[in-house]
Amino acid sequence: MNTLDRDKQLVAEILNGKRQALSELVHLYHTNMTRIARSFVGDANAEDVVQEAWVSVVRSLGTFKGEASFKTWMTRITINAAKTRLRKEAKHISHATVVEDLYQDDYKEDGTWRVAPIPWDDESPDALLQSEQVLSAIAKTIDKLPDNQRIMLTLHDLEGVLMEDVCNQLDITTSNGRVILHRARLAVKAVVNKLQEV
């Protein structure tokens, strides 16, 4: 059974009062939703926000039509819960665009490389995923990114949310969203690159 059908069936069973189906759904999505919430509100409040999101999800389960996937639906609810939390705490997502030129050190006036990129030991995702050092450096870098870059990278690259949806949620244009995503990726790449130098 594919994910969509499985989730629809779980939802139907939950509506019939089956605790087991609810437990399955929570186990399937809680961890991903926590990662999403964390990118907005940080570690301390993420769990809380996701619990609030689950309450909304369960209360409105009857309205879930299964047109979008359950994950997409719940992602929206989680993001809304996270944004509500930020509003309550009078915090907002910093949309400060970095004005400094990200690339200036790497390229000459004429747009050619100033210093050639260094080779990596292994330029495959498999190799990167196997290195604890790389994974921990990536995780730390993501945490330290500016708000909008961290949220964008988490939603788009880690959770696979469509660019249009992320931009709607963040109330930014798609072209702005693409620049934000690119900067975030370059920041992560720079850190992986640094690990290769030593």
């Binding site: 991903n32 330029e123 190799a127 990167l128 994974l135 696979g160 990726r185 370059l186 992986v192």
Partner: peptide, 20 residues
């Protein structure tokens, strides 16, 4: 490009840490 692609594919495949 090879390196950026490797990084992006790595990000796609990063599983979330279970914190609960």
């Amino acid at each position: 490009m090879r390196q950026l692609e490797a990084v992006v594919h790595t990000l796609h495949r990063l599983s979330p840490q279970q914190s609960t």
